[in-house]
Design a binder for these strands. Sequence first.
DNA 1: GTATGTGAAATGTTTCACAGCC
DNA 2: GGCTGTGAAACATTTCACATAC
Lengths: 259, 259
Amino acid sequence: MTAHRDQLDALGVAADHRQANGAGRTVPDATVARLALYLRALTSLADAGTATVSSESLASAAGVNSAKLRKDLSYLGSYGVRGVGYDVELLTEQIRSTLGLNQNRAVALIGLGHLGQALAGYAGFASRGFRIAALVDNDAALVGTFVRGLAVQHSDELENLVRAEDISIAVIAVPASVAQEVCDRLVAAGVTSILNFAPAVLNVPPHVDVRKVDLAAELQILSFHDNRKAVQADIEADAALAHSNGAGLSARAGQAGTA
Amino acid sequence: MTAHRDQLDALGVAADHRQANGAGRTVPDATVARLALYLRALTSLADAGTATVSSESLASAAGVNSAKLRKDLSYLGSYGVRGVGYDVELLTEQIRSTLGLNQNRAVALIGLGHLGQALAGYAGFASRGFRIAALVDNDAALVGTFVRGLAVQHSDELENLVRAEDISIAVIAVPASVAQEVCDRLVAAGVTSILNFAPAVLNVPPHVDVRKVDLAAELQILSFHDNRKAVQADIEADAALAHSNGAGLSARAGQAGTA
DNA sequence: GTATGTGAAATGTTTCACAGCC
DNA sequence: GGCTGTGAAACATTTCACATAC
């Protein structure tokens, strides 16, 4: 679990050189995660013909508060105009450049079950700076079929494809039982960033980044909050009851869903 | 292993609640997000026949460090035995109860495109405490078809289904353009927790929680770090070069930026 | 007047390190 | 001896509030 933080903080020498893309500072992780949101909001503003936007309205379009947005943008540099706001096009360009999206990065997608097919067809990838350059599966029935104009290749070809297309980012959408094996092969072939949809912990060397999306975990987190709301509602009902008739505890504490 | 700032709710919710457990403790959001991971790790330990586990090995199975794991578990109460470790079954039960998973919650899934189909078929939902109780789409070609044994209903039925099944959690997997409308209807029908896969910001009243999964945003975050690694590699190459022949800038790899 | 950019304060999270218990 | 549970320190993020610039 050596993390990025280490790499980010150990930049010392790097500072000067990185100004190639206009950003001289180190950008906090929490900020990086939101830049993608701002980008999406900016794109829809641009589509609507807006040329300039205030931190207040951009923040609301992205679903954050304006102080946070301004702080975030300040890490990229000073691209707003006081009393006016931000130029939509300029800011879009700055964020794209900070995220490294100006190179239309090639991405490999491993696993073409329903989820993989959904990912392959997801318009957002193409429109937001990524080109799916390789589709790989080990199911003979899928190999050779075309998904969005690209042929599915057999997994034997994985290493060749990664090298031929100079792919550094891969998406894993295979069953958990084979995720680590696929991961190892990707890393050996030169992939350095992985987005993992399999519900499994991937072990990788320190120079490789893994982000994971765990669908069931997301629901469980919601469940926690939902449960809390139900319990809270019960407590309030009890309080009201105690007030009105001096009685005590509700018998349904812990059983949710009544509200 | 890797962790950016832990990503768990980097793009997370707009909610700030704390739950009172049976004992009255509060569980931090960052901890809640990890409980789901621990649960998954515990389940596979149980399947492997392990009865007791140390914080060290559970942490490594879940991909976190052991101090964090112990701190997290301490918010639930004191369920370990010093010198020994944690009882797998007991701890599983405690986490399930904290997350409110002991009621097999009914979930509605709206949108049965590829992503929706993948979600409907995702075994993890059923096995991890959720029952998909309603499938809804507005495409006439899909209505009446069966997905995993459950009939797809027309979206006109949305409100009826939510009420009939007493659904409080919904998953939105529709195009961004109709996401807000679907969301409004869900909320009006009584849904209080939403997992949103559409790349759109949803506006909801304060009593409703939204978590979002933005697939393109995840890739963009990886892209940022990948880009940084490439730049770093350039810097090191330059340094080496400067050492060996006193020259300056490398033109290598084309990763650095946007001239 | 208006809206950005940013120090400083408040809040949240992770890590450390060790007392306490088996 | 080994491992949990937890205060306290270190670190990271968010919010506040206002000086600064247009």
